[in-house]
Amino acid sequence: MSSGTDKDVEVKDTTEEHSDNSENAKSDSMSKDEAKKFYEEKGLDLSPDVPVKPKPIPAFEKSLADKISSKFGDKIRVDYIRSDRIRVTTKREDIVDVAKFIRDELKYDHAESVSGVDYPDSSEIEVIYHLGSYTDEKLGRQIFALATRVPREDVPNPGSDATRTPSLRDVFYSVEFHERECFEMFGVYFEGHPDMRRLLLPEDWADIPPFRKDFKIKGR
């Protein structure tokens, strides 16, 4: 996500932005070259099955994205605009302001999910809020993905290391349990969350956060 690309050009830059991530993904098991060789030996090619075709940008979603980009300018980056889906990335310092704008001006009122995605190679963990709206009729089918990235430490110490971001619990009340799950599964500490405890994991869990890529399932 480090490369500053034009925000209005969509699918193209998603491919770009993920291209470096895909490398990270494989690094937990084998390097890119090794993987390519491995798959070629099996008679498979590594190119994606779906050729990336630029689609027309829908107007309504474009107008929403324009609103938010005109307000925040450089602070945010619009990753893609597709039918019913918008994705925006911001820095973690600005995320509360952006979320407040999304709630108050764009009328998104609840969070559907909060996901963490681990990128070990760029040493970052991405936190994505998928926001939806019940109050606004037009936004019924829309999902707004608000993403931010937090630094990742190789030796995690959840809650006490730099892997932390402001909590959106005061903006969207509904993220409360999702953020708790993200905390225990990825070790992302949400500052300002009133009840940052473990939720699903046992109380005596002493391993690294299990959804990070360097946590291996036994036997795999």
């Binding site: 998603t14 491919t15 993920h18 291209s19 991530n21 895909s22 498979l44 590594l46 190119s47 994606p48 099955d49 779906v50 990336v52 889906r85 994705r87 559907e112 999910s113 996901s115 994505i128 998928h130 999902i143 993905a145």
Partner: peptide, 22 residues
């Protein structure tokens, strides 16, 4: 089959409410 460098969020209505896959 392999997917591209992409992401998708889809949801349906189940007996207990919306189920979303990211």
């Amino acid at each position: 089959p392999k997917g591209g460098n992409d992401e998708v969020y889809r949801r349906v209505e189940s007996g207990r409410g919306a189920i979303g896959y990211y």
